[in-house]
Amino acid sequence: QIGDLVNIDLDLEIVQSLQHGHGGWTDGMFETLTTTGTVCGIDEDHDIVVQYPSGNRWTFNPAVL
């Protein structure tokens, strides 16, 4: 839910696979593998929007978090 702290604890290849159809994966997202983020929103597809200390916001398949 919004305000929750979240981490990704999966291998890169699994995360990339799960992201298909959920915003995809870009090289800029590598920070998300090692950094705790804060849930800042849930979109119309029930994907999770997470903000990181860098100021970046990324959209994830809920199965990734």
Results as ranks from 00 to 15, higher is better:
41 G>T: 05
30 F>I: 15
2 I>S: 12
18 L>N: 01
45 D>H: 15
32 T>L: 03
41 G>C: 12
34 T>K: 15
5 L>A: 10
6 V>F: 03
50 V>I: 09
46 H>S: 12
52 Y>W: 01
27 D>R: 10
2 I>W: 02
36 T>P: 11
31 E>T: 06
17 S>H: 12
16 Q>I: 15
5 L>K: 15
5 L>Q: 14
6 V>Q: 05
40 C>W: 09
14 I>K: 11
31 E>H: 09
22 H>A: 00
14 I>D: 10
55 G>R: 05
41 G>Y: 12
45 D>F: 11
27 D>A: 07
48 I>V: 15
60 F>I: 08
58 W>D: 06
36 T>F: 08
63 A>S: 08
16 Q>M: 11
50 V>Q: 08
23 G>S: 04
45 D>W: 05
63 A>L: 13
29 M>E: 04
43 D>T: 10
24 G>Q: 05
8 I>P: 01
65 L>G: 05
31 E>G: 05
10 L>W: 10
5 L>P: 09
18 L>R: 05
48 I>K: 05
50 V>M: 07
35 T>Y: 12
21 G>D: 11
45 D>L: 09
1 Q>R: 15
54 S>P: 05
43 D>F: 06
16 Q>R: 13
1 Q>W: 13
65 L>P: 09
10 L>R: 01
56 N>D: 06
64 V>D: 00
23 G>K: 04
11 D>P: 15
31 E>A: 00
42 I>G: 02
51 Q>W: 07
9 D>V: 06
51 Q>T: 09
60 F>R: 08
59 T>L: 04
54 S>G: 05
59 T>M: 04
29 M>G: 03
2 I>E: 11
59 T>E: 03
19 Q>L: 05
53 P>R: 03
33 L>V: 05
34 T>S: 15
64 V>G: 01
36 T>L: 05
54 S>D: 08
3 G>T: 00
61 N>R: 08
36 T>I: 06
14 I>A: 13
42 I>E: 12
24 G>E: 04
23 G>T: 04
22 H>V: 00
6 V>C: 05
21 G>A: 07
28 G>N: 13
12 L>T: 07
14 I>G: 07
41 G>D: 15
26 T>C: 15
5 L>T: 09
45 D>V: 07
10 L>G: 12
34 T>W: 08
14 I>Y: 10
48 I>W: 01
6 V>R: 03
38 T>L: 10
38 T>K: 13
1 Q>E: 15
12 L>C: 06
41 G>Q: 13
25 W>Y: 06
34 T>I: 10
7 N>R: 11
16 Q>H: 02
65 L>N: 02
9 D>T: 12
26 T>W: 09
26 T>I: 10
9 D>C: 14
34 T>F: 13
65 L>H: 00
64 V>F: 02
61 N>G: 00
46 H>N: 15
30 F>W: 12
13 E>R: 12
3 G>M: 02
39 V>R: 02
53 P>W: 04
17 S>A: 11
17 S>L: 13
26 T>S: 14
28 G>C: 13
20 H>T: 11
19 Q>S: 02
28 G>S: 13
63 A>C: 11
22 H>K: 07
4 D>S: 12
2 I>M: 14
64 V>S: 06
44 E>L: 10
8 I>M: 03
8 I>W: 01
46 H>M: 15
65 L>S: 01
33 L>C: 06
23 G>F: 03
65 L>T: 05
44 E>I: 08
28 G>P: 11
22 H>L: 10
32 T>W: 01
44 E>A: 14
23 G>A: 03
17 S>T: 12
55 G>P: 03
14 I>Q: 14
15 V>P: 02
58 W>A: 03
19 Q>G: 03
54 S>K: 00
57 R>P: 04
48 I>C: 12
4 D>K: 08
54 S>R: 02
46 H>C: 14
42 I>F: 12
49 V>R: 04
38 T>H: 05
36 T>C: 08
17 S>P: 04
44 E>C: 14
3 G>R: 02
20 H>M: 14
36 T>A: 11
57 R>H: 10
45 D>T: 11
9 D>A: 09
37 G>L: 00
5 L>G: 04
3 G>L: 00
15 V>G: 02
58 W>Q: 05
12 L>R: 08
42 I>S: 06
64 V>R: 06
12 L>A: 10
31 E>C: 02
38 T>R: 13
1 Q>V: 12
64 V>C: 12
30 F>P: 02
39 V>T: 01
61 N>K: 02
18 L>S: 04
52 Y>C: 12
7 N>V: 12
55 G>K: 02
34 T>E: 14
26 T>F: 11
30 F>A: 15
34 T>A: 13
63 A>N: 04
13 E>S: 10
21 G>M: 05
1 Q>Y: 15
41 G>H: 14
12 L>S: 08
52 Y>S: 01
62 P>T: 02
32 T>I: 07
35 T>G: 08
25 W>I: 06
59 T>V: 13
17 S>V: 13
38 T>M: 14
37 G>T: 01
18 L>P: 05
20 H>L: 11
63 A>P: 01
8 I>S: 12
64 V>Q: 07
20 H>F: 07
2 I>A: 05
46 H>L: 14
29 M>V: 05
41 G>V: 09
1 Q>T: 13
21 G>I: 01
53 P>D: 05
3 G>D: 03
38 T>C: 10
39 V>M: 08
45 D>E: 09
60 F>M: 14
57 R>L: 11
30 F>V: 15
51 Q>D: 01
8 I>V: 07
17 S>K: 15
10 L>F: 08
8 I>D: 12
19 Q>N: 10
49 V>W: 02
59 T>S: 07
60 F>C: 03
20 H>E: 15
63 A>R: 11
31 E>W: 05
49 V>Q: 10
11 D>C: 02
54 S>M: 00
53 P>L: 04
40 C>A: 10
49 V>M: 09
7 N>W: 10
60 F>N: 13
11 D>L: 01
32 T>F: 06
27 D>Q: 14
15 V>Q: 03
25 W>T: 02
13 E>L: 07
52 Y>E: 01
21 G>Y: 09
39 V>E: 04
14 I>M: 15
57 R>Q: 09
24 G>R: 02
48 I>S: 02
38 T>N: 02
5 L>M: 13
22 H>N: 08
40 C>Q: 10
5 L>R: 14
65 L>W: 05
16 Q>D: 07
42 I>K: 12
60 F>T: 04
50 V>A: 03
54 S>L: 01
18 L>M: 12
57 R>F: 07
14 I>N: 11
40 C>V: 15
34 T>Q: 07
64 V>L: 11
36 T>R: 07
48 I>P: 01
20 H>G: 06
17 S>Y: 13
40 C>S: 07
22 H>D: 00
51 Q>L: 11
41 G>P: 04
51 Q>A: 13
32 T>H: 00
57 R>Y: 06
16 Q>Y: 06
33 L>P: 02
4 D>L: 10
62 P>K: 04
5 L>S: 15
13 E>W: 08
26 T>M: 10
53 P>C: 01
28 G>I: 00
35 T>L: 09
29 M>C: 00
56 N>W: 01
37 G>M: 05
1 Q>K: 15
46 H>R: 06
5 L>I: 13
47 D>V: 14
11 D>A: 12
23 G>P: 00
42 I>M: 11
54 S>A: 01
27 D>V: 04
45 D>R: 15
35 T>R: 11
44 E>D: 11
34 T>H: 10
58 W>P: 03
8 I>G: 03
14 I>V: 13
32 T>G: 08
63 A>M: 14
12 L>M: 12
52 Y>D: 02
44 E>Q: 13
29 M>A: 03
8 I>T: 03
3 G>A: 01
25 W>F: 09
60 F>V: 05
3 G>C: 12
47 D>G: 15
1 Q>D: 15
37 G>D: 03
56 N>K: 06
15 V>L: 15
50 V>R: 04
39 V>C: 04
38 T>E: 13
